[in-house]
Computed example of a mutant assay.
Amino acid sequence: MEDKDAQGFQAGHSGLIVTIPEAEPAVRAWRDRLDPSSRAGVPAHVTVLYPFLDASRIDQGVCAAVGELLGRHQSFEARFDHCGRFPGVLYLAPETDTHFRRLTEAIVERWPENPPFGGQFDDVIPHLTVAQGQDEVVLEEIEADLVTNLPIVTRVSSVDMLVHDGTLWRRRASFALSQARLRWWAAR
């Protein structure tokens, strides 16, 4: 018996994401209609790594290792200033994606048995999915709406671990990025 829900998400799957709450006003209505992950409880986000470990393998040791690894990375500002496309998919693209890529690379280096998206793509492009499975006319309509709300700027200071329970994605843990630079300025 296959243990999958209607959107194809499997119970026990986990992922690491950066939530982008500042994008919600611009993307929520579109995502709720046209992105299955939104209907399954995932907020506007950029994926760091999916799939990660099966939930049965995630214990305090794994969480401590993820936290220590991500804590080596500085928080950063992300600016989403344009839309991009994959076939049938519309997304918001960060102005620069270097910081997102470094987070993914660090996690994959530590857990190489979990390549991004199961190794499906040669180059993983950091993005915030807005709609998928749509034809060009629909994507053009959505993009015309979205560009009026750009840029969207956020401070990335943590990475969340989500686990699918068979129905919804739920946050299992949150890992802070380093705030060392901010603390140094605050201390002066």
Rank of each mutant, 00 (worst) to 15 (best):
M1L: 02
D3Y: 10
D5K: 04
A6N: 10
Q7K: 12
Q10N: 07
Q10W: 14
Q10I: 11
A11K: 15
G12V: 01
G12N: 05
H13A: 13
S14E: 05
G15W: 04
L16V: 04
L16S: 10
L16E: 15
I17Y: 15
V18K: 03
I20A: 02
P25E: 01
P25D: 06
P25K: 03
A29P: 06
W30V: 03
D32W: 04
D32Q: 15
D32H: 07
D32M: 09
L34H: 12
D35S: 06
D35H: 10
D35M: 06
P36F: 07
S38L: 02
S38R: 14
A40R: 11
G41M: 08
V42P: 02
A44H: 11
T47N: 06
T47P: 01
P51Y: 00
P51F: 00
P51A: 02
F52V: 00
L53H: 05
A55K: 07
S56I: 06
R57Q: 11
R57W: 05
I58S: 03
I58R: 05
G61M: 00
V62L: 00
V62I: 09
A64R: 03
A64P: 02
A64D: 12
V66W: 05
G67P: 06
G67E: 12
G71F: 02
G71Y: 06
R72P: 01
R72K: 13
H73G: 05
S75D: 10
S75T: 11
S75P: 01
D81C: 00
C83E: 02
R85V: 03
Y91W: 14
Y91F: 15
P94W: 04
E95G: 12
T96V: 07
T96W: 05
R101T: 05
T104F: 00
I107T: 00
I107A: 06
E109H: 06
P112A: 00
N114R: 14
P115V: 14
F117I: 03
G118T: 05
Q120Y: 10
V124L: 01
I125Q: 11
P126V: 06
P126A: 07
H127L: 00
L128A: 01
T129H: 01
T129P: 13
T129F: 06
Q134G: 09
D135R: 04
E136I: 02
V138G: 04
L139S: 10
E143M: 01
T148M: 12
P151D: 08
V159R: 08
D160Q: 14
L162Y: 15
V163E: 13
H164S: 08
D165K: 09
L168W: 10
L168R: 15
W169R: 09
W169T: 11
R170Y: 03
R171G: 01
R171L: 00
R172M: 04
A173L: 06
S174W: 00
F175Q: 13
L177E: 04
Q179D: 14
R181W: 08
R181N: 11
A187C: 09
